[in-house]
């Protein structure tokens, strides 16, 4: 991902999620883009110079007591570009980066009602991890 891609990434994310998060994406780019180092990754898929989709993730060490593994925490494709294998290529690319960083397992976390993205990760062979996400309202 390059600085020039940010506006298109922000636009795709805003369109898919319904919320524009400009500051958030500049922060992500700052931490995961050119300064990402060997553990943080963000990639875009381009066609004729236009961004079709993006993926963001990082290697997390000993989180919840688990050996280092890759985490994908953002993946999205422009709606018109779907069903063309763009997300599959993005996932393959970041998995390759994780592999180069020395990890052999990849995880992600998806909202239960996000059927589209859940189905995508399932189609890539991902299965339920040995964790149960929990939350509590503390307001």
């Amino acid at each position: 991902m390059q600085a020039d891609d940010l506006d298109q990434v922000i636009a795709i994310d805003a369109r898919v999620t319904g919320v524009e998060k400009t500051d958030y994406w500049y922060e992500v780019f700052h931490r995961y883009g050119t300064r990402g180092g060997r553990q943080r990754f963000c990639f875009v898929a381009e066609l004729d110079g236009a961004v079709e989709g993006f993926v963001v993730g990082e290697v997390r060490d000993w989180e919840f007591g688990e050996p280092p593994c890759g985490w994908v925490f953002g993946i999205s494709v422009r709606p018109e570009a779907r069903l063309g294998g763009v997300a599959t290529r993005l996932l393959e690319t970041i998995c390759g980066a994780f592999r180069s960083a020395g990890v052999t397992k990849v995880r992600t976390l998806i909202a239960r009602d996000n059927h589209l993205v859940l189905s995508f990760f399932r189609s890539q062979g991902m299965m339920a991890a040995p964790f149960i996400p929990l939350e509590i309202d503390i307001a």
Partner: peptide, 22 residues
């Protein structure tokens, strides 16, 4: 039940065929 429903909704026949092959 909610977790079970989400799991069933996320797995297509195509994905199941890949699982069967695995």
């Amino acid at each position: 039940d909610e977790i079970a429903r989400a799991t069933f909704r996320s797995i297509t026949i195509d994905t199941m065929l890949k699982l069967v092959e695995r």
